[in-house]
Design a protein around this nucleic acid. Structure first.
Lengths: 232, 232
DNA sequence: TGTATTTTATTTGTCGACAGAAAATATTTC
DNA sequence: GAAATATTTTCTGTCGACAAATAAAATACA
């Protein structure tokens, strides 16, 4: 006998936030891979709430580009556009540079504390050879730098790109589980030094090089993946 | 006797789009000035539809930053943050540069046709000394350049900034109705030339100078506005 | 008369239900 | 047996209604 889930007492307005967070996480770590249909009714039963807050969460995700709503048909998790990855790399590199520059210009001691804390997490993830944790902590590291830059427009685009990158990296690290490059830890340390010294040009150059490294890393992974597909 | 508006037959799914467009336009041309509360019931009566599609439109506007939802209270049109206008100018300048560069790199003949068509509209608006039309056509001009750049991340940020700028300019031109600067028309022409010639560096330099001009223009208007306020 | 407290009213957040649109399935026709 | 058509099913988009939360009004009290 399937029993209906009880309507748990919840704070008014929290429902949307819960659904949004769950879906977002599932999409970004590929628990919901690109193309997955999202059934509103199924979700509403699983989370024991009406379809209204779920639809609201979906609308928010859609306006962030994480899901695509097909009119009168199910909404699906957005695809990763491999044809135009270069636009992603281009934007990512520029945003790394711009946010790091700004952070070097106008950081506060509290910002530096936050940045260093994220770097500790990142180093730990690399040390533990935990690819998933590395992806997540790298995102947080650059997110706090972007926040320290104090430009909401740049920050928003940077966060969006970091999330998109999280999905992308997750795709390859889950299938290959590579040796995680320890040099990234040193590159982050150098970035922190440049920001601390308020050396804008050096911060810019380091961010640029760091972005190039990551781009190259991803492209290597993609190339290897393609070869593997051909060999089948 | 107040009669209830008839539920007009409408295509399924079009309701949200209608509300979204109306609200968006009203917000951007300051028909709904910053801080205006948006009453869902009132809107639903005026447009003769249920609150559901209206709420969906509001969620979309909120995720674009055009409205702010106060929990359990009315949603209001977002304020213009005059304290941090420099972040807007900074981002606007960079996006002008980046999108113009990319347009110079990878435009097609169709792109150039679209750009030139927008420039004709812009020139006409300036010639007619129609401030509102100038604001709108200027937005479209840079929007098609951004589209020609073919980077969806840059394009999205650029559109957001152009809309924000539309609101800002509208605020001052509505109160002062200035002489509209004819030099902008020539600057646009120069931009088109550089893009057509695929001269990336020149396009970049021109876009940078153009952005600086506009920033200076806005700052002049703001300064004049402040003086006027003090003199009262 | 001014402040604190209770009552009322307004408005949001959530719900269940229904109708319309595709997709999936069954049925007919050749 | 295959293609075309009809039927059913599934799921979205929209609706009206209700309850919680806040703001406004009214009342009590000093």
């Amino acid at each position: 006998m399937t029993r209906k889930p009880k309507a748990v007492e919840r704070k008014r307005g929290s429902g949307v936030q819960i659904v949004y967070s769950i879906l977002r996480d599932d999409i970004l770590d590929l628990t919901l891979p690109p193309g997955s249909p999202i059934d509103e009714i199924q979700l509403s039963e699983r989370l024991s709430m009406s379809r209204t807050p779920i639809r609201e969460a979906l609308v928010r995700l859609a306006s962030e580009g994480l899901v695509t709503t097909l009119p009168n048909r199910s909404t699906v998790v957005s695809n990763i556009d491999f044809m135009n990855l270069h636009t992603f790399f281009d934007a990512m590199t520029l945003m790394y540079r711009v946010t790091t520059r700004l952070a070097a210009q106008c950081h506060t001691p509290a910002d530096m504390d936050a940045i260093r804390a994220r770097q500790v997490d990142f180093a730990a993830a690399v040390e533990a050879q935990d690819a998933l944790a590395m992806i997540a902590t790298n995102r947080e590291f650059h997110a706090v730098i972007a926040r320290a830059g104090r430009n909401p427009y740049y920050e928003a685009l940077c966060l969006r790109l970091l999330d998109e990158g999280r999905r992308l990296l997750r795709m390859y690290y889950s299938s290959f589980d590579d040796q995680l490059p320890k040099q990234y830890v040193q590159e982050h340390e150098d970035l922190i030094d440049a920001i601390t010294a308020r050396d804008v040009d050096r911060a810019d150059a380091l961010a640029s090089a760091h972005a190039d490294q990551i781009v190259q890393q991803i492209q290597t992974l993609i190339a290897r993946d393609k070869r593997q597909h051909i060999s089948l």
